[in-house]
Amino acid sequence: MAVRAVLEWLNSCSGCEIAILNIGEALIPLVSEHLDIVHAPILMDHKCLGQCGEGSEIEIPEADIGIVSGGVANTEHLEVLLAMREKCRLLIALGTCATHGGIPALMNGQGLGEGIKGVFATSGTDPCSVPDVGVPAALDRVYACDEKVRIDLFLPGCPPNPALIAEVLTAVAQGRDPVQPGKSVCDTCQVLREGKGAVSKVRRFLVNADYNAEEPVQRMRCLLEQGFMCMGPVTAAGCAAAGLPPSCIRVGVPCRGCFGPVRRDGNQMLDMMNALASNGIDFKSVVDRRSLLRFSGAHGLLRQIRTRPVRERG
């Protein structure tokens, strides 16, 4: 018996959906045997407001599982998410936007409303006001899905690893618990590590890392130990394809934390900055530390910088 599934996307880029497609040939048996997808805007034509556009409230079909990608940034996202929760027995948050806000939650650093105003006030744009006819109103900030509804399963990643998506979908279809990684990117990273003590400052990634592409990555010194900001230690594992190092490290590029924090309630900025400071690395050498929350700015972690009068320091 195939399980009924619905897919929705909220404040997202469709990378998660492409990741589903990137399951590749294994996708065919999955969608033809295990899953009975009854609603998925990117792939099929079921409409939320009725096939003839006559509905007034969002309709999502009843389903065993719901997969939602993207965070929640406007009233429409929220309505869709609430409808999903109502109709789905098991609700899966797919991708880091859904689990932690993702890149769009960077907007929380300046305030969603302020940011949107700014978008329509760029110098190249003809004078206008913020559109408000027939388009949904923005919320106060970008939320992760679990801030708004209960989420049963979290499958982060930007994009999520197709193999993990397949594992989760197969497991759910088979009625078992999926196997998901629980450690940090470093767990799958085979680079040479000798201690961080020699690094005193973090370098910007303006030159390539020191490594020989002809050699296996095991011969490359840990990028953090080369002085680059690599967020592997504070980022959930999962990006690595089977038997391979993490996807960025593999091409000599430091991790930027796209799977979100190792523990779901972790704080990548705090954990990373702390690890640096503890190792005697000048935390001020990090040019833009708030960027460390670039994938996990929801849950109130990334906030608008307040401007307040300077207090007398005693």
Partner: peptide, 14 residues
């Protein structure tokens, strides 16, 4: 060292 960092991060965190 952490403390200097916390002081700044608290600002970031609001």
């Amino acid at each position: 060292a952490r403390s200097d960092m916390i002081t700044e991060l608290l600002d970031d965190m609001g």
